[in-house]
Amino acid sequence: MAGNPTDFLLMACHITGVYDVNRNTTLEPDDYRLVQEWAESVAAAKIKGVIFHNNLSPKTCETYTNAYVSFVGIDYNPTFNPNVFRYFVYRDYLEKHALETRGVFVTDVSDVVLVNNPFEDQRFINQPSAIFCGDEDKPLHNEWMRDHAAHLREQIAEYAAYENRFGQDTLLNCGIMGGHTSVFMGFLEKLCALHERYNANNKTAYTGDMGAFNYLARTQYTDQIISGPPVNTVFKLYETERTDCWFRHK
């Protein structure tokens, strides 16, 4: 997939001022340090990167914008928690830029770092129908996911059957996902439709992003999913010296 570096895109969201259920805190509004490592790793690889944000100051954005990484202000919609709202942001942006984007990844911004350019890897190039994503060293059927998916289980009639079918399969992690734009755009649209229909009224302490992502990936894309090496390091092992994967996820 040789081409201009601007054909490829990495996106991340940094939404602050809203209680973060995963960190049990509210992030400071204008703290560039939380996105710095992501931004620097993307710029070092000379890939186009976009950080969507709702509270970074104009000065911060101007200071850290460069030839590769830019900042785009957004209006946060509290109908959805930040973990879910980001997918609508990515979908809307990609809809406007799909024709000029051949490959795309969307990732967490504060705990994911780019290690190697995925778009130059033959394993990406030669698998145009794949959905590449992160994963965890545990099965889908685990206590956290059972709690996380309580709301979706009540909303989606087939959800419990899906959990039983794929319970022993690897838990996929939506902190890293991407693919060739022609396929990934459809995946994003379906993911947003799931959240619009089933997750807008989620009043639980869990965001539902992992539940909806795994449900969609396993039920509609199970033969197209590629996770683990070369996509991601082992989640939460903090493998800072590892250089054989595209992304390091904690």
Rank of each mutant, 00 (worst) to 15 (best):
V35E: 04
E40G: 02
H53E: 10
N54D: 13
S41N: 07
K46F: 09
Y32V: 09
D30W: 12
L10R: 00
A45K: 11
E37V: 12
L34T: 00
P29E: 05
N22C: 06
T60H: 08
E28T: 05
K59C: 02
A45H: 11
L9A: 10
D7M: 03
W38F: 08
Y19K: 06
T16V: 06
G49V: 03
E37S: 12
C13H: 02
M11F: 03
H53D: 12
S41F: 15
R23S: 10
P58M: 11
Q36G: 00
V42M: 13
N24F: 04
G3M: 07
V50W: 02
T26A: 05
D30Q: 06
H14G: 05
D31A: 04
V21G: 08
A12E: 02
Y32R: 03
E40K: 14
I47F: 13
N24Y: 01
G3I: 04
T16C: 14
A2V: 10
I51E: 05
A39D: 02
D31H: 06
G17D: 07
T60K: 12
A43I: 06
E40H: 13
M11A: 06
A45S: 14
R33W: 08
L34M: 10
D31W: 03
A12T: 10
R33V: 10
D7S: 10
N24P: 00
E37A: 09
T6H: 09
E28F: 07
Y19W: 09
C13W: 01
L10H: 01
F8Y: 14
C13S: 13
E40Q: 15
Q36K: 15
E37K: 15
N4P: 00
Y19V: 03
A39Y: 11
S57Y: 15
T6G: 08
K48R: 15
N4Y: 04
D7V: 00
Q36S: 13
K48I: 01
D31R: 05
Q36L: 14
L27W: 07
I51F: 09
Y32T: 01
T60S: 13
E37W: 14
N55M: 15
N4I: 03
D30K: 08
L34C: 03
Q36E: 15
L10E: 01
Y19M: 05
A45N: 09
T16K: 07
S57K: 15
L56Q: 11
V35H: 02
A45G: 07
